Simulated assay, not measured.
Amino acid sequence: MRFLIFTVLAVFPGLLLGSSELDGIWVLDGPGTESEILLTDRGERLRSDYDLLEDDPSLSCTPASVSRVWANPGSRVQIQQEEDRILISYELFDLRREIPIGDESVMSELPSTKNLEGVEFAEMGSSFASYEGDSLIIVSRNHAHGYIRTSRGIPQGSDTVTREVFEVNGDRLQITHTYEDTTLFEQPLVLEYFFNRLKNAEIELYNCTDPDYDWFLELNAIRED
């Protein structure tokens, strides 16, 4: 019996270490926090070239980055822990993220995120998950070019590595999200998000149909008049 327990832990390291409190549906509570953003020359060039009305991937129903999806106000997120993987369902763009549990060797080179139509999004990276005590850790690599902050054009790239730490306290979830990329940042960028648990709730279909910023242009036109 002792050998069986050790074997299960070796194959499914999160089975006994993970906190079941993480399972459920969550919604963002406020804008969260971010550390000082210090861009390299290359990062600053990418930021300066960014045009919100032309370059925001959301215009084509594409997630700009994992951080952009976490920070979307009002969108529900469902987290499910299974024996060998973590499943995260985002209402935004109907995204479904499937992350194997283990070390880096279990990480696929393919993106971990698809929408309900099976379209893969490399902007969300390739990920693997592990546990440290009751905290869930997700590490992601292999990112396509995208934007951590679409309002300001803060970029990510192929050298970007991220680490998400999930910590639950009752009905409160904190995610600490660290971005590292020496080609873009002088120092790691650390973001924090806070979520409240929703009870008796479900993930609804988003059914994205190429959003645009017509409302933004119309508002500016009114102000200019």
Rank of each mutant, 00 (worst) to 15 (best):
M1F: 11
M1R: 10
R2H: 07
F3G: 09
L4Q: 09
I5T: 11
T7Y: 14
V8N: 11
V8P: 12
V11Q: 12
G14M: 05
L15K: 12
L15V: 13
L16H: 10
L17Y: 12
E21M: 11
D23G: 14
I25H: 09
W26P: 04
D29I: 02
D29L: 01
P31R: 04
T33E: 01
T33K: 00
T33R: 01
E34P: 00
E34T: 01
S35N: 05
R42F: 11
G43H: 11
R45K: 12
R45S: 13
L46W: 12
D49L: 12
D51E: 13
D51S: 05
L52W: 03
L52I: 06
E54Y: 08
C61F: 00
S65C: 00
V66A: 01
S67E: 01
R68D: 03
N72L: 02
G74M: 07
G74W: 09
R76I: 03
Q78K: 15
Q81W: 14
E82L: 14
E82D: 14
E82P: 12
I86E: 08
F93Y: 04
F93R: 03
D94S: 06
D94W: 08
L95T: 11
R96A: 10
E98I: 15
E98V: 15
I99S: 05
I99Y: 09
I99E: 11
P100H: 13
P100A: 13
P100G: 12
I101E: 13
G102S: 13
G102A: 12
D103G: 14
D103Q: 14
E104V: 15
M107A: 09
S112T: 08
S112A: 09
T113S: 06
N115H: 06
L116I: 14
E117F: 03
E117I: 00
V119D: 10
E120K: 12
A122D: 03
E123D: 00
G125M: 07
S127T: 08
A129P: 08
Y131I: 15
G133P: 11
D134V: 02
D134C: 06
S135Y: 06
S140R: 05
R141E: 13
N142F: 12
A144L: 07
I148K: 01
R152C: 07
R152V: 06
I154L: 06
S158T: 10
V161E: 09
V161Y: 09
R163W: 11
R163Y: 10
E164S: 09
V165W: 10
V165G: 05
E167R: 15
V168N: 03
N169Q: 10
D171S: 08
Q174P: 02
Q174S: 10
H177A: 02
T182Y: 02
T182W: 01
F185E: 03
Q187W: 09
P188Q: 09
L189W: 07
Y193H: 06
F195A: 04
E204K: 04
E204Q: 08
L205A: 11
D210N: 02
P211T: 05
D212C: 01
Y213P: 04
D214Q: 06
F216T: 10
F216A: 04
A221Y: 13
R223D: 15
